[in-house]
């Protein structure tokens, strides 16, 4: 998975400087690194992702986009106010 990290996009649709990751609560976030913890086994130390952290897969990103799209339909973006003649509000 480390080699297949997916570049995260910002609100402008351009890369925002990180990769998609899934946090322990199941949120899809953008991160440059994911938290690691050190495991010491005798005199050997290695680092593994902290519990619940992983880089996102294409399926994760797709599922989050579906979720966001459904939310947009159910809950139109806030602060769109205007008069009766306003189009597309």
């Amino acid at each position: 998975m480390e080699d297949n990290k997916i570049l995260a996009l910002g609100p402008d649709g351009k890369p925002c400087g990180g990769w998609y990751a899934v946090n322990p609560s199941g949120h899809l976030i953008a991160a440059k690194t994911i938290p690691m913890r050190k495991i010491v086994d005798g005199n050997v130390a290695r680092y593994v992702p902290k519990d619940g952290w992983r880089w996102a897969s294409a399926e994760d990103v797709g599922a989050a986009r579906d979720h966001a799209s459904k939310l947009d339909k159910a809950d139109p973006p806030k602060a769109k106010v205007g008069g009766p003649l306003k189009k597309g509000g």
Partner: peptide, 18 residues
């Protein structure tokens, strides 16, 4: 902006999507 990008990397979260 780069500093605030770190907030999402906190392991403990509250709130629900949407």
């Amino acid at each position: 902006d780069d500093y605030l990008a770190l907030l999402a990397s906190l392991s403990n979260t509250v709130g629900s999507s949407g």
